[in-house]
């Protein structure tokens, strides 16, 4: 199944990736080549096979509900593009 240009635009929006109109034909073509490779999977009989999500099939380890970390806000905000008074700054979202 080949992707249309409009589907590529939708995927880019879902992934929050800006796309130039000029790049769209090439991006669409490359994605279709990759999906062509991936579609070879459909020929494999996987009836009744349980999906494998984790190679060792272990489940998530739980820890005791105790405070183990200290507040690192200043260290983490020191590497942010824009902060003020401990808050991350973004363009206005509520008028």
């Amino acid at each position: 199944m080949a992707l249309e240009r409009s589907e590529v635009e939708k995927i880019a929006h879902l992934a929050r990736l800006g796309l130039n109109d000029a790049d769209l034909p090439r991006t669409t073509e490359t994605l279709n080549t990759i999906l062509g490779l991936i579609d070879r999977m459909q020929a494999v009989d996987t009836q009744g096979i349980e999906p494998l999500a984790h190679p060792l099939e272990t489940s998530q380890r739980l820890r005791a509900d105790e405070v183990t970390e200290s507040n690192q806000r200043d260290a983490y905000q020191a590497i942010a593009p824009a902060v003020e008074e401990g808050l991350y700054l973004v363009p206005r979202v509520i008028e």
């Binding site: 991936i38 999977m41 459909q42 494999v44 996987t46 096979i49 349980e50 999906p51 494998l52 999500a53």
Partner: peptide, 15 residues
């Protein structure tokens, strides 16, 4: 299902 689950089923066959 057609992609991610299918790929994980093949992953089990490989294992």
């Amino acid at each position: 299902d057609a992609y991610y689950i299918k790929a994980q089923q093949i992953r089990r066959l490989i294992k």
